[in-house]
Each structure stands twice: as structure tokens, then as C-alpha cells.
Computed example of a mutant assay.
Amino acid sequence: MDQDHYRKLERMYLASKVNTQIFDSTTAKVSHEKAEIGLKIDPKYFHALGAIHGSVYFKLLDDAAFFAVNSIVAEVFVLTTTFNIQLIRPASEGLLRAIGTVRFKSKSLFVAESRLYNDQGKEIAFGSGNFAKSKVALSPEIGYR
């Protein structure tokens, strides 16, 4: 794959409505079989006890694994078919960083894992999932530009 593909994936991610209308401070860096997604913690992501809600952990972990897989699939959008997470510790301030990597690839199945770190470098969650190719072409209509 080439750098142009990685930059288009990053722009597609950052321009998506969930990242422009709900999650404010996201960053994305895609490379071969790897992706890093960042989010600045905001109290609007907290549950009642004042820490990040598990849905935010899930989103960051899934996004990082997803883009690690899509880094090696240039023709179509991939889909998450399963994704499981394990929460290790809470986070309530600073920056979160999810790093996803491809663990297995075949013609029709991809397995990727991701780890979520706080800004002290401590792992706070991890996950893994299965991904498959969709029939939706990567195109400017879906933000791949």
C-alpha cells in the first residue's frame, strides 16, 4: 500500500460525522497493518462515576483495529463482524491513544487487536475482533479523498 491510501483513510476517519459532531479531539495515523487513534478526554464522555464510559473505550479500540485492517485493503471498506474488549482501569483526564495491529489475514477474514493507553503510557483496555471486506468501494462519496 502507499502513503496516499493511508492519508485518505485518515481523512475519511477524521471527517466522519461521529468524529466531527460527537468526538471533538480525535487524531488518526495509519500505516501498513497499523493504526493509531487519539482522543482528548472530555467530561462529556464520563459515566456517573466521573470516568470514561465503556462505549468510548470500545469506539477507540474498534476504530484502531478497523483502520489497521483497512490499511491493507485498498479497494473496499471493511466491516467489523465481532469485537470484544477488556477494560483494565478507568481514565478521567489527559489523552487516550489506541493502537491497532493486524494479527491474521486471509482472502475473506482479518483479525486485528488494539490496545488503549492513557497519557502516562499505562494500558487501560484492550480488544480484538474479526473484520471482513464489504461490497462498498472506497470512494470520495464516503469520504475517501
Score class of each variant (00 low, 15 high):
residue 52 I to M: 10
residue 94 G to I: 02
residue 126 F to W: 08
residue 95 L to Q: 11
residue 60 L to T: 01
residue 19 N to V: 04
residue 70 N to P: 02
residue 3 Q to S: 13
residue 43 P to A: 03
residue 5 H to F: 08
residue 105 K to V: 13
residue 107 K to M: 12
residue 25 S to R: 08
residue 121 G to R: 04
residue 137 A to H: 09
residue 43 P to N: 03
residue 28 A to F: 01
residue 70 N to E: 15
residue 86 Q to L: 07
residue 32 H to R: 14
residue 123 E to P: 01
residue 140 P to C: 05
residue 138 L to F: 02
residue 44 K to I: 11
residue 82 T to A: 06
residue 34 K to A: 09
residue 94 G to R: 01
residue 115 R to I: 00
residue 116 L to P: 11
residue 22 I to T: 13
residue 15 A to S: 14
residue 2 D to S: 15
residue 114 S to P: 04
residue 114 S to R: 05
residue 106 S to E: 12
residue 93 E to V: 00
residue 62 D to C: 04
residue 107 K to D: 15
residue 25 S to V: 00
residue 104 F to W: 01
residue 88 I to R: 11
residue 81 T to K: 09
residue 121 G to Q: 03
residue 44 K to M: 10
residue 130 N to C: 09
residue 141 E to S: 14
residue 108 S to H: 12
residue 30 V to P: 10
residue 126 F to R: 08
residue 90 P to M: 04
residue 69 V to W: 14
residue 30 V to L: 12
residue 86 Q to N: 14
residue 45 Y to H: 05
residue 40 K to G: 09
residue 100 G to C: 07
residue 103 R to A: 03
residue 5 H to G: 11
residue 129 G to K: 07
residue 113 E to A: 15
residue 27 T to Q: 12
residue 32 H to Y: 15
residue 124 I to N: 03
residue 47 H to A: 07
residue 29 K to H: 14
residue 2 D to C: 13
residue 139 S to I: 01
residue 53 H to S: 04
residue 129 G to N: 08
residue 124 I to P: 02
residue 26 T to S: 13
residue 36 E to P: 06
residue 79 L to K: 11
residue 33 E to G: 12
residue 46 F to R: 03
residue 83 F to G: 11
residue 80 T to N: 07
residue 39 L to T: 07
residue 131 F to K: 11
residue 72 I to G: 14
residue 74 A to Y: 04
residue 29 K to E: 14
residue 124 I to H: 02
residue 69 V to H: 13
residue 2 D to I: 13
residue 56 V to W: 03
residue 85 I to K: 01
residue 79 L to H: 07
residue 41 I to G: 13
residue 12 M to P: 06
residue 40 K to E: 12
residue 66 F to Q: 02
residue 123 E to R: 10
residue 109 L to F: 09
residue 77 F to Y: 12
residue 92 S to R: 02
residue 17 K to N: 11
residue 86 Q to K: 12
residue 29 K to S: 13
residue 143 G to N: 06
residue 119 D to G: 01
residue 129 G to D: 05
residue 101 T to I: 06
residue 51 A to K: 01
residue 2 D to P: 07
residue 54 G to S: 03
residue 130 N to V: 01
residue 129 G to W: 07
residue 70 N to I: 08
residue 4 D to P: 00
residue 87 L to F: 14
residue 104 F to G: 00
residue 75 E to T: 13
residue 90 P to C: 08
residue 78 V to S: 12
residue 45 Y to E: 03
residue 62 D to N: 06
residue 109 L to S: 10
residue 18 V to H: 05
residue 88 I to V: 14
residue 20 T to H: 06
residue 7 R to K: 13
residue 34 K to T: 15
